[in-house]
Amino acid sequence: MVNLSVKIGRLELPNPVMTASGTFGYGQEYSEFFDIERLGAIVVKGLSYVPKQGNPPPRIAETPAGMLNAIGLQNIGVDRFIAEKLPHLRTLDLKVIANFFGDSIVEYVKAAEALTDSGGVHALEMNISCPNKQAGWIVFGTNPDAMREVVTAVRKATDLPLIVKLSPNVTDIGMMAKVAEDCGADAVSLINTITGMCIDTKTRRSKIANVTGGLSGPAIRPIAVRMVWEVNKSVMIPIIGMGGIMTAQDALEFIIAGASAVSVGTANFINPVAAIEIISGIESYLLEHGIADINEIIGSLKT
């Protein structure tokens, strides 16, 4: 037997594999394919205090080994999540991480408070890749000052483990991670999607209605691994790595680069049992290499 359990701050996970926000709904859709209690954790679709309709279609387009999405953070809102989705999640032996966001600092704080009070949420992951409606539409996660302000406010509003999900659309992600750490984050997760575009040359229109979208899937993996490595050099808090993880080998790259846990996103769409295959693949890797504990290889990159 090998040890697969890892710690994200105070949060103990039975294994390092979770599902990425926005790719796994609230767990129901995929429960028919495997026992979701086997996951390290589930990260639910991004929630806001006020429900959001999302962007007009088309919302997705495929690109080489990747996909662009502009869902527009459509979600049922924190209240309906707590009333309709959380009761079922509470009955499971499963760590629930609530991903959330806001249009303003006030909205972030309201969402964080409601989720903290709900009972049944084990940790919060704040998505800061969205703009501040009340301050010139600056994306919180791409401006260190805006980020400091919002993370500090949320930190005061919750005593749950707080994970800050970093945007890759920055020049120095190590520096942004440091800001999160300084503001009291218990962990950082990365990467969110990389902003991209693709154009239909026949119509000369973007293939998605929102014009720009977020790129995910295997196409972004090398960038994501590099960013995890950079963040690992700049902060002490644990890292959750993601971006194009399809297989256990991919997940191990992130772990070796410094991630204590990983999230599986786009891969769920292609292989609904990807997360489970990745867990057993990591286990086999440890056995094969005579490694007794996953924690031994976290951040073990040889340079």
Binding site: T23, G54, P57, R59, I60, E62, N69
Partner: peptide, 22 residues
């Protein structure tokens, strides 16, 4: 028809405009 990613209701990628909601 709409472009789909997951096909199972998880990604919210395939919506069309209904009368009140997507």
């Amino acid at each position: 028809e709409e472009h789909m990613a997951c096909g199972v209701g998880a990604c919210l990628g395939c919506v069309v405009k209904g009368i009140n909601e997507y």
